[in-house]
Amino acid sequence: MESIVLFERQQNIAIITLNNPEKLNAVSVAMRDALYEHILAVQADPTIDGVILKGNGKGFCAGADLKEFGTVPSVIEKRKIRIQHDIWEEFRRCPKPIAAILHGFAVGSGIEMAMICDFRFAAPKTKISLPECALGMLPAAGGTQSLPRLMRHGWAMDFAMKGYYLSAQEAKARQIVTDIFEEEQLFEEVYRFMQRITMYPKVAQQIKRLVTSGLDRSLEQGLAFEQTLVKENYMQHVLANG
């Protein structure tokens, strides 16, 4: 039986593929567990400089597997896995840039997963929604915190509470989507983008660290941290070149 999450690499880029197309790649316990293992492997491998996350079939991810979610043993199991395997925190913690490729539907946990990534590229017909509030639920994968870090506060509140669908074009205008490419060229364009930004992998990782940590620092603290890394890079360059 083929794995529910596929892992491969092209040169220095890891490619993680959600692989449950019959359920539109709905997030299950098994998928979370597999994603956790793969993201840890990415972090530990010094020859991997970036990650592309995508989905097989007709959509990126249709959200949580509600059939599984509704069973009592599953609820207990999910809680245990979240304690032991905090997959979303590992995505956030990953020092290497991650780009999500969206097509078809990116809904609920699917768009939340993508919003944890550093970049989101979409096919023109992609539909994006965060429907949990309309279902009497809270977004469970950090959506309430990711949204206001990507879009304006008012848009974030409106989108999270009403549960409507955004087109790829609307999502780009609201800064959820980085860019839009035709579906036939989507992977090649994103792969080319990742190759470009990881040309100097250490610099890319340091920029990610600075930008991400800056969200939780004052401007003064952020600038001081930036200068610390600049000085470290300069000293390493001097030592390497005599």
Results as ranks from 00 to 15, higher is better:
residue 9 R to A: 01
residue 131 P to E: 11
residue 14 A to I: 04
residue 239 L to P: 00
residue 44 A to H: 13
residue 17 T to C: 02
residue 140 A to G: 15
residue 152 R to N: 12
residue 22 E to Q: 14
residue 191 Y to I: 04
residue 145 Q to V: 06
residue 214 G to H: 09
residue 110 G to K: 06
residue 237 H to T: 06
residue 92 R to I: 08
residue 128 I to C: 02
residue 116 I to Y: 07
residue 70 G to V: 04
residue 209 R to I: 00
residue 158 D to F: 10
residue 80 K to C: 04
residue 210 L to R: 06
residue 84 Q to M: 14
residue 199 M to P: 00
residue 5 V to A: 11
residue 88 W to F: 15
residue 91 F to S: 07
residue 109 S to G: 13
residue 66 L to D: 13
residue 38 H to T: 02
residue 102 L to G: 02
residue 175 Q to I: 00
residue 12 N to P: 01
residue 218 S to E: 05
residue 90 E to R: 15
residue 92 R to D: 14
residue 83 I to M: 11
residue 65 D to L: 05
residue 66 L to E: 14
residue 188 E to V: 00
residue 156 A to W: 03
residue 91 F to K: 06
residue 230 V to A: 09
residue 158 D to M: 06
residue 70 G to E: 11
residue 98 I to L: 07
residue 230 V to M: 05
residue 219 L to W: 11
residue 68 E to S: 12
residue 146 S to A: 13
residue 171 A to T: 00
residue 166 L to F: 14
residue 222 G to T: 13
residue 50 G to P: 02
residue 57 G to T: 02
residue 22 E to D: 13
residue 51 V to H: 04
residue 36 Y to S: 08
residue 210 L to A: 04
residue 6 L to G: 08
residue 18 L to H: 05
residue 200 Y to A: 09
residue 7 F to H: 15
residue 161 M to R: 11
residue 182 E to D: 14
residue 47 T to D: 14
residue 84 Q to L: 15
residue 233 N to E: 10
residue 141 A to R: 14
residue 172 K to E: 06
residue 107 V to L: 09
residue 151 M to L: 03
residue 170 E to M: 06
residue 168 A to L: 04
residue 155 W to R: 11
residue 172 K to W: 03
residue 232 E to H: 06
residue 242 G to E: 08
residue 32 R to Y: 03
residue 17 T to S: 12
residue 222 G to Y: 06
residue 146 S to F: 11
residue 212 T to D: 12
residue 97 P to E: 03
residue 162 K to N: 15
residue 177 V to I: 12
residue 170 E to G: 00
residue 173 A to M: 06
residue 15 I to L: 03
residue 148 P to M: 06
residue 115 M to S: 11
residue 210 L to C: 02
residue 26 A to M: 11
residue 104 G to R: 01
residue 233 N to A: 10
residue 122 A to N: 03
residue 90 E to I: 03
residue 81 I to Y: 06
residue 49 D to V: 00
residue 114 A to G: 06
residue 167 S to G: 08
residue 166 L to P: 03
residue 238 V to P: 07
